[in-house]
Write a protein that binds this DNA or RNA. Structure first.
Lengths: 232, 232
DNA sequence: GTCTATATTCAGATAGAC
DNA sequence: GTCTATCTGAATATAGAC
């Protein structure tokens, strides 16, 4: 009966996973509020009551979606940073290595279409601008450790730029990333030619690193006459 | 009775405006889906049925909110670009001037707290990543002319960078802007110190121009060994 | 133009049989 | 763990008096 038991356990867990996957997809397509539990369970091939059984509430379902993926993503980011710092042997990291440590795990997850990683990365891009307080708090909590580590590494890498300035630039960089990843469709807004979806994320990654590295290490705004005009 | 008639007309128009303003504010705070017509009319001091009378549907209300502001914003952007090009007398524009032409109207509107401009700019930042197809189509239509003009100016300003690359970078820049503006709250995610809300937008503008200018004019990705590793 | 009252639909959540 | 059936509340939208 060991076989039967194994199969049963797998089947039980499968419903929960199917709900998580279906919800991830629908949330990307329609947003959190606009997606009903009925849509989710229907696409997951599960019963409506299953959501309540497995997660308790819709909010808890959202929480579990982010937990499941962010745990992996952030662990990989820290591991990449550890590796880069080990390779640097005490010297400050190149900004490039820093950005890559942050982005490589995103690219990796985004490539994983079989297990919904691709879907989640798009969802993540949107989540940063989510108005729902719950989602924002969730992200803030999940990111606090990662941000701290990368902040310190960045201060160390660019000691001649004031920390306050670097924090702003990290923020801009995060925006460029999130938006670029989330806007799979809105690229059409700017591009006049077709963007093939299959290589979308990889194309972004390849091109965004030089953009961000240059932005992060840009000349100080005080040195730029333009900022004076704008601030005036 | 001219006076009475004027007052009446003002009062009539006022309800419509109050609804638009209240909706703008609530949409920023809660998102489109999560905001009910009841909340809107209640905050606007109007009757629930007034929305249907003035706008027909909730969707049409959203449309009118964007129309009202984007008309002004984009006209100013084109005017700024015209002025900059006139001043350049046929020579290519500095990338800095381009970015400023795009951003100055945003700053201007964002400063206008009395008439809700500030609120709309935050809403605009969020709108780019809205999952609702309606909102995305609305933006795309409103932006097509502006994007075309700025694209051409950018190609002219940086002829040594491939157009396809520049389009990507415009996209990244737009992301950094939108996200930075939308994320009034999420700055807390990165910043460990307090950010005073009053000078938030101005601080962003002052600091984001050098970041974007450097990113747009960055060395080509082919020249960067990092991109190779990422694309591999 | 503005109101009250209401029609209609659909949301999240749960009780209880299997 | 999964199902059916249902509760309860709230949403958009509208009809019709003023």
């Amino acid at each position: 009966m060991a076989t039967a038991k194994t199969l049963d356990t797998k089947a039980l867990g499968a419903t929960r996973e199917r709900i998580l996957n279906a919800a991830e997809l629908l949330f990307v397509e329609q947003g959190f509020e606009a997606t009903s539990l009925r849509q989710i369970t229907s696409r997951a091939g599960a019963n409506l009551a299953a959501v309540n059984y497995h997660f308790g509430t819709k909010e808890a379902l959202v929480r579990d979606i982010f937990d499941r993926r962010l745990r992996v993503l952030n662990a990989q980011r820290l591991a990449e940073l550890d590796a880069a710092e080990a390779a640097a042997r005490g010297r400050p990291l190149a900004v490039e290595s820093l950005i890559e440590a942050f982005l490589l795990p995103v690219l990796r997850m985004s490539r994983d279409r079989a297990h919904g990683g691709h879907t989640f990365i798009r969802l993540l891009g949107r989540a940063y601008t989510e108005p729902t307080e719950m989602v924002r708090k969730l992200l803030a909590a999940a990111y606090v450790e990662v941000i701290e580590r990368f902040k310190r590494a960045l201060f160390h890498a660019l000691p001649h730029i004031p920390e306050k300035e670097l924090i702003w630039r990290m923020h801009f960089a995060l925006g460029a990333m999130s938006y670029a990843i989330a806007g799979t469709d809105s690229v059409q807004l700017i591009a006049s030619y077709e963007v093939r979806d299959t290589d979308h994320t990889e194309a972004i990654m390849k091109r965004i690193v030089p953009f961000i590295v240059a932005g992060i290490a840009a000349p100080l705004p005080a040195a730029s006459p333009a900022s004076e005009r704008i601030a005036a």
